[in-house]
Design a protein around this nucleic acid. Structure first.
Lengths: 357, 357
DNA sequence: ATTAGCAGTCAATTCTATTGAGTGCTAACA
DNA sequence: TGTTAGCACTCAATAGAATTGACTGCTAAT
C-alpha cells in the first residue's frame, strides 16, 4: 500500500479520538485498544490502534492513568472534541415538551422563573444546574413607589428596567397621608427615572439633597425624611446571586470516589461567593471566543483544583439591554457534551421567550 | 459497706451516662470503661464502671458497635441526656457580638433577613442551618397596589400582614392612567384588606365578580380586566420554602464515612420538598411537648433512614399572629446539644427583635 | 502500513497473619 | 454487698504476600 495521504491519516485519527472519548464517557473507565478496534468504520487490529493511540498521547490528547491501563482524554482532548468533533444531539420529544410546559404557564416573578430554570436544568441534565442572576445595579430605575401599609410602616418598592424589584419595609419616619407619599414618589421618579442604578447607588443621597432645597415647606420636609432610607436601599442589595440546584447529581459520578474529595467538592459548590466569581470570569472569557453562543469550560481550564474533574456548559442571557445573567449546567468532565449544549440552548430559548425581552 | 441507697446509685448512673455521652461527642469513637473511670468525681475502677455500663446498656441507653468495643449512646440515651442531664452552654462573647452585628443593620426585606439567618445559624454552629419560611397564605391581606411601569407593563404588588410581599409583572390588559389604577387598588383594598389570604386564594375571583356588577361604566370595565391576574397571583406562590445553608459542614463528621451514604445524605438534604414536610411535622410534634421552647429531634425519631445519624435543634418563630416559621440547625446526632440549644435561642431572639413583631 | 506474538507492568483482589483495644466473667477482697 | 484484679476471649483494623488479569510496548514477520 502506498503512503497514506496526510488527509486520510488525520481523518482516521480524529475518528479514533472521538471513539475513545465517547467510549470513555459511556463507561467511565480507561479505553483499551481492543475495545475500539472493531467499532463501526474501524477495521484495524488492536496493535495498529495502539500505535495511533500512542501518537495521540504524544500530542497530548490522551493519557494513561498507569502504564498498563487504557487511555482517557486529557483536557486538551476534550477541548478538541468539543471544538471540532462534537455532534449536537437533539433533545427527546418529552424533554422539549417538559420545557414548554414549564414555561408556558407564565410564572410572574422573575425570581421564580430563574429559580425554576435552574431546577429545570438540573432535572433534565442530571447534572447540577445553575443560574447566575444578574446584578440589579447594571439596570436603570424604572419606578420608585411608596406604599403606606399602616400608620407606622411604609413599603418602599423599587422597580428596575430589567424586571427585578427590590423592596423594603420602613418604619415610617413620620405621619404622612397617601397623597403626600404619592408626591414623594412622583418627585423621585420625575428626576431619577431612567438613570443608571449603579450611578444612583453611590450618590443618590447627595444628588437628592442637592435638589431638595429647591422645594419648600412640607414637601421639602417629607423628601428629607426619605432621602436616607432610599439611599440606603440602593446601596445594599445590588449583589448578584447564584442559584444552584442538583448538586447531588454530580456526586454519583465515579470521579469523586473518595469521601474527602466529595466533601471538598460540596464545600466548593456551596461557597457561592467563590463559585460566582469563577463562573462569571470563565464564562465571559469563553463566551467571547465561542461562536455557537454556548460556552464550554473544561476541567482545569477554570483553574480551581476542586473543580478539576468538572466542566461547565453555559450561556449568557439578557433581561434588559445590558443586564446579563448566565445559565448552564455543571457536571463531570466526562459528560455528554452534545446533549448538554443542546439542552442549554433549548432552555435558554425558552427562558428568553418567557421573560419576553 | 451498707447497701447503697437507690438515690445515690441513680445519681452515679446519670453522671456516668453523661460522661460517656460527652466523651463520645468529643472523640467520636466508642468510649471504653478505662477512659471514664478516672474523670473528675468518678473514682471507680474500670471493672466497676464496666458493670454499670452493662446495666445502662441493658436499659437501652448505650450500645456497643461490636463485642470488644466501647459504648456509645443510643437515641434513647441522647434523649435522656437532652431531657434531663443537659447543661445549657453560654455563647462566647464574640459569638453574641457577631449575632448583634448581623441584625443591627436592619436589612429591609424579610426574605433577606431569613436567608441571612440560615447562614448565621450554619456559620456559628458549624452545622447546617435552616429556616423554614412560613407560608404566606396563613396571613392576611394588608395592601394591594398596581404600579404602572410603562405603557405595556403593570406591576402588581401584594403586601401581607406578616411582612411578606409578592409581586408580578403583568402585561397590561389595556391602557389605563395612573388615576384609574389607583382606583382599582383602592377598590380592592377597601373590600379585601384584612381578609385571610388562604380564603381569598380560593374564591377571590368569584367574590370580586360578585361585587363588580355593582359598579358601573369605566370602573367596572377596568376591574374586570384585573380580576383574573390578581386571582391567579393569589393562587400561585403560597408555598412555604426551606432555606438550607452549610450542608457541607455536616459532611465532615465521621458518621458519613462512606461515599454512598454521603451521597444519599446530600440527596436527601437537597430534596427540599421532603425535608420540608419532615421538619414541619417533627418540629410541631416536639414543640408541643417541650417546655424550653427549643425542640430537639434526635436521630431516628424523625423516621427518615438517611437522617438516622442527624439531629435537629429548632424553634418556631412568628412574623405575625398566626404565621409561624421554624429556624434551627441540623447536625450529627453527636453534637454539642448544650451549645446548639443556646445558639438557636439566641438567634431566635435576635430575629424576633429584628423583624420587630 | 499493518499485524501477530510475546514479555512486561501495574492496579485490583483475595487471603492470611498480626495487633491491640476492650469486654465479660470469676474469684478474691473490704 | 459492693468493688476490684486478673485472665481469657472477641473482633475490627492493619499490613503483607500472592495471585490475577487487563493492558501496553516492542519486535519481527507479512
Amino acid at each position: 500500500m502506498r503512503v497514506l495521504e496526510q488527509e486520510e491519516k488525520k481523518r482516521r485519527k480524529n475518528r479514533l479520538l472521538q471513539t475513545v472519548i465517547l467510549e470513555y464517557i459511556r463507561t467511565a473507565s480507561p479505553v483499551a485498544s481492543g475495545a475500539v478496534s472493531h467499532t463501526e468504520g474501524m477495521q484495524l487490529s488492536p496493535a495498529t490502534v495502539r500505535n495511533m493511540l500512542h501518537e495521540l498521547e504524544k500530542e497530548g490528547f490522551l493519557t494513561q492513568p498507569h502504564t498498563s491501563a487504557g487511555r482517557l482524554p486529557t483536557d486538551k482532548g476534550y477541548r478538541y472534541y468539543v471544538d471540532y468533533l462534537l455532534h449536537l444531539q437533539e433533545l427527546l420529544g418529552e424533554e422539549r415538551q417538559k420545557i414548554e410546559q414549564e414555561y408556558e404557564r407564565r410564572l410572574g416573578e422573575i425570581e421564580t422563573i430563574l429559580s425554576r430554570t435552574s431546577r429545570m436544568l438540573a432535572y433534565l441534565s442530571h447534572q447540577a444546574g445553575f443560574v447566575l442572576r444578574p446584578k440589579m445595579e447594571v439596570s436603570t430605575l424604572q419606578r420608585m413607589e411608596l406604599i403606606a401599609c399602616d400608620d407606622t410602616h411604609i413599603l418602599l418598592v423599587l422597580v428596575a428596567k430589567n424586571g427585578f424589584i427590590r423592596y423594603r419595609l420602613l418604619r415610617s419616619p413620620g405621619l404622612f397621608n397617601e397623597e403626600e407619599l404619592r408626591r414623594v414618589s412622583h418627585w423621585v421618579n420625575k428626576r431619577f427615572q431612567g438613570k443608571n442604578l449603579k450611578d444612583l447607588c453611590g450618590n443618590f443621597d447627595r444628588e437628592m439633597r442637592d435638589q431638595i432645597w429647591q422645594e419648600a415647606g412640607r414637601l421639602e420636609e417629607i423628601l428629607k425624611s426619605f432621602a436616607e432610607p432610599i439611599a440606603e436601599m440602593l446601596q445594599t442589595h445590588t449583589e448578584e446571586e447564584l442559584l444552584l440546584e442538583g448538586t447531588a447529581n454530580i456526586l454519583s459520578t465515579p470521579e469523586v470516589s473518595q469521601v474527602g474529595s466529595m466533601r471538598r467538592l460540596v464545600e466548593t459548590l456551596e461557597d457561592k461567593q467563590e463559585m460566582l466569581a469563577l463562573l462569571k470570569k470563565e464564562i465571559q472569557k469563553a463566551e467571547s471566543k465561542s461562536k455557537k453562543g454556548v460556552s464550554v469550560v473544561i476541567g482545569d481550564e477554570a483553574r480551581v483544583p476542586e473543580l478539576r474533574d468538572l466542566s461547565v456548559v453555559a450561556k449568557a442571557f439578557e433581561t434588559d439591554k445590558n443586564t446579563v445573567g448566565v445559565l448552564g449546567i455543571l457536571g463531570p468532565k466526562r459528560m455528554e457534551y452534545g446533549r448538554m449544549v443542546s439542552l442549554v440552548e433549548a432552555i435558554y430559548g425558552a427562558l428568553q421567550k418567557a421573560i419576553g425581552v
